[in-house]
Design a binder for these strands. Structure first.
Ligand code: MN
Ligand code: MN
Ligand code: MN
Ligand code: MN
Lengths: 219, 219
DNA sequence: AATCATTTTTAGTCTCATCTAAAAATATTT
DNA sequence: AAATATTTTTAGATGAGACTAAAAATGATT
């Protein structure tokens, strides 16, 4: 059995190390999971013991094949629940994360698959993140960071990386939502900020914000 | 904060002691929760410490007002999730209990209330158990144990007490479901069994089974 | 290459929720 | 009312998961 805590560590390693294929440092995990390095070392040993992670002292962790699958299935649940909360229970995209963080640990294969069906087999969650299938696979949607877009070009907001409620509330406040068409007007070399235009207005977004916005451009 | 384990104890006390108003013994709780008496004593002290239970050594436990409310809200969640699983996710009534046992501990007031709305504010779960409202109140549906019914009379199966999957599978096997009309034909004094008649057939049910069936009789 | 800084691991402690075994209190029989 | 049986509590131990402080390893800088 994989415990709740173990699942959270698997997810962190998966996210930090390109699906767990690249070695992740103890400190990086500690920060992500808001714990201490010593706690992480303990847990990593346990994961290695259970053949979910590959661990060499002082050289970070990667996930084994089964660790990677386990992580992907937790992420699958997390994202399906997020869709459920938004589509069926009137949650906004900035309200779903904490509840999904709990729901992702519910154990019932039937529940996950039926939920998937109820929602019409969605491919992406409310933040544009792809939903892995039963085998842990997904095809990331073709989107590009808004900072890579040449001024003058436009695209549809397809994904936001930061799912924290502070960031999403900022987007709400500025009327930016998934699916909105955004045109890049100007890049400012001094502070790396960006002037963009939406259906409703023109605005300047900081580099910190821009880093989190991904748009898809139809060819 | 009330932990998952505390919630399970609150529920047990609530169920065993007429909503926690009547003193429940340490052993009774231990059996219900499948733990040991010594563990129960420990937990009861903790609940008393948190003002969720009234505890006098050697004299059992009752729930305080806030303990009763906390218990009722967990039960509310449990039963709403059961309805959700059956109504929306194609679970059968014998499959829901274990999953609901996990889901009942998810913390999010909005989630519960939206779920309630999605389901159309149901008053009973798939086993005929009443669903408490936000204040922990409910009106138990007027039903009578089938053993109290005079032979010759009939009623509609409205509630089953045992929600274990073995019992529910027994009912499935014999084509007995909530809402079915059941006529009591004969009571056997020797083993206290009962002969009943449904739309499809006549059958004998043991006293152990009969104890768990409640029917409502319209006047 | 030697020193200093950072990261990671180890050692030891804590809380929560459990358990077993023994002691104490209560309940039931004779 | 004693003796016996049962229930409940206490005492002490364990494992999971977290922490702090100190030691060890690695990495960076002179
Ligand atoms: Mn989580
Ligand atoms: Mn998301
Ligand atoms: Mn439970
Ligand atoms: Mn039920």
């Amino acid at each position: 059995m994989v415990t709740r805590s173990e699942e959270n560590y698997l997810k962190a390693i998966y996210h930090l190390g390109k699906q767990g294929t690249v070695a992740v440092s103890t400190n990086a995990i500690a920060e992500k999971i808001e714990s201490k390095a010593s706690s992480v070392t303990d847990m990593i040993k346990k994961l290695a013991e259970k053949n979910l992670a590959n661990y060499i002292k002082y050289q970070g962790v990667t996930l084994t094949e089964s660790g990677r699958l386990a992580a992907a299935l937790v992420i699958r649940k997390h994202r399906l629940w997020e869709v459920f909360l938004v589509e069926k229970l009137n949650f906004t995209w900035d309200e779903v994360h904490d509840v999904a963080e709990q729901l992702e640990h519910i154990k019932s294969p039937k529940l996950v698959n039926e939920l998937d069906a109820l929602l019409g087999f969605p491919t992406h969650d409310p933040h544009g993140d792809p939903i892995p299938d039963k085998d842990g696979h997904y095809t990331p949607l073709k989107s590009v960071n808004i900072l890579e877009v040449e001024p003058g070009n436009e695209g549809v907001l397809a994904r936001v990386i930061d799912s924290s409620d502070v960031f999403l509330k900022y987007l709400n406040k500025n009327n930016l939502a998934l699916g909105d068409t955004i045109k890049v007007l100007d890049f400012e070399p001094f502070d790396h900020s960006l002037t963009i235009e939406t259906a409703t207005k023109k605005m300047i977004i900081s580099n910190a914000v821009a880093k989190n916005l991904f748009i898809s451009q139809e060819l």
